[in-house]
């Protein structure tokens, strides 16, 4: 794939946001909030950072691998996969419908290209990514493994089992990213279950931690991912704290947990799409 400029990546992101909103609107179901908040990150990964092959192969040898632990933000992942050429963009119209490969939460059962494991029940993706990263080490495959988690998801105990393990086993070919939007279904994380200082928590577990303070700025996301990549191979797993705003890109959705799992109605969709240029053509 030809290297895209930051502007071109921003254009892709605008289309991805349209895809997210149209998918969720069409079936009146799904999770637009954090999908919109992570759009720059997913676009940067799939259109710039990762070495990956749209001709999907489950084993992914000599490719960078990506795992999504907070599976409910499937719309953003499906969009970047389709826009990368893993499957036809028209298939996005089947999202969450009967007999679709685009299940509500990502799954392998229907063989959707790009998906390597089911996720949705939270807390499991970090362990899976660590296992995949260790397999790469056994195989002498020097590509990286990426995993995204939610911040609310950090409340699951398995995450901390995995965090301890990754440092102990020096899984330094792994870049974990936490979508730090500080919201969960029932409200702000600070009120539901205060995460306090995730940097301190992970550092004390033996991780190398970086902050991407502007997680909705493409330039900043790219710099953060480059920085993370440069820290690999030094004996420590890497955590990228991606500071985002839920619902970013649509003025009436931004910064609130209200749109965590709510679909826009017809008028809201129209208002939202009016803010997002159709850069690559709607599906």
């Amino acid at each position: 794939m030809e290297k895209k400029s930051t502007e071109q990546l921003q254009e892709v992101a605008s289309q991805v946001r349209r895809d997210i909103l149209r998918m969720v609107h069409q079936v009146q179901s799904g999770h637009p909030g954090a999908s919109l908040g992570c759009t720059e990150f997913f676009t940067a990964l799939y259109f710039d950072q990762m070495k990956h092959d749209k001709n999907f192969n489950m084993k992914g040898k000599n490719e960078d691998l990506f795992f999504l632990s907070n599976g409910h933000i499937s719309p953003v992942w499906y969009s970047v996969l389709a826009r990368s050429g893993y499957f036809p963009i028209a298939e996005m119209s089947t999202f969450r419908k009967l007999n679709s490969r685009l299940q509500g939460h990502p799954a392998t059962e229907e063989n959707l290209p790009g998906i390597r494991i089911a996720s949705g029940s939270l807390g499991q993706g970090l362990s899976v990514a660590i296992g995949a990263a260790q397999a790469k080490k056994i195989d002498g495959d020097d590509r990286l493994v990426y995993v995204m988690m939610g911040d609310g998801e950090q409340e699951e105990g398995q995450i901390w089992e995995a965090a301890m393990y990754a440092a102990h086993w020096k899984v330094d070919n792994l870049i974990a990213t936490i979508d730090l939007n500080r919201q969960q279904i029932d409200g702000p994380t600070k009120e539901i279950m205060d995460l306090i200082d995730l940097r301190a928590k992970y550092e004390s577990f033996g991780w190398e931690v970086i902050d991407t303070l502007q997680g909705n700025n493409m330039e900043s996301v790219l710099i953060g991912l480059e920085k993370a990549k440069n820290l690999t191979g030094q004996g420590k797993p890497i955590l990228n704290l991606l500071h985002t705003e839920m619902g970013y890109g649509v003025d009436f959705m931004v910064g609130t947990h209200k749109w965590h799992g709510i679909a826009p109605n017809d008028q809201q969709l129209a208002d939202a799409l009016a803010q997002l240029p159709e850069t690559l053509g709607d599906y």
Binding site: I117, G131, A132, Q134, D141, G157, Q158
Partner: peptide
């Protein structure tokens, strides 16, 4: 791989190891 007393993580790690075969 010794996982310590952390069975949930062990199952996840195992699933991840499968991906490359």
């Amino acid at each position: 791989f010794q996982t310590g007393i952390a069975e949930a993580n062990m199952i996840g790690i195992a699933a991840g190891l499968c991906i490359s075969g």
